[in-house]
Amino acid sequence: MPSTQTPPIAGGAIDPPSLRPPIADARIERVDAARVRARLEELHAQGWTMLLDLGAADYPLRTPRFDVVYHLLKLSAAARTVAEVGTPERMRLLCGVEADDARVPTASDLWPSADWAEREVFDLFGIVFDGHPDLRRIQMPHTWEGHPLRKDYPLRGPARERSPRPAFALKSNVQAGVPPSGETLAALQEQRKKS
């Protein structure tokens, strides 16, 4: 919830990932949706064994609108000691996705762990992963409409309609003297007298 009285100060950066501060947290690469599958296959073959994370971000004013963000780690399953692991290489692959045809080929056959991550991105951003074996919503209910983590999705929903009061509690009925229970009527009339 917006907890402060002051309105948000938008930074105004339309494409923040392109404004790289000098932070060496990973090797960074950018691909478009058409080439991402080939690039992922290549990386998988090169020994990037772990798909550390798969997420997305929404930049509504930018073309392409979405980024699917892959974080990869070159970790050998045979590394039995800390020295053998060392500092494994880490890579961030940013894949731009168009707004009107938000589709990306799946990576779940290369890294099985992409399964739930892709379902989550599909659920919360509405990006479709072509070839995913079981693309269903994962966090939101299956009947949900809309994709909550998109920037144009409101933080709060409309005020919920209050459930209707039972007939005997309606003031008009109390006045007409048709409540099923005398007790409620007495209590309500008492209350009216007081007010």
């Binding site: 938008a10 930074g11 105004g12 923040p16």
Partner: peptide, 24 residues
Amino acid sequence: PGDVYQSVESPRGELGFYLVSDGG
């Protein structure tokens, strides 16, 4: 503005945050 990935060893494993700032 910019983006960053940072991870720590939480009791359950690698906990990571990918943060993006638009300068706000």
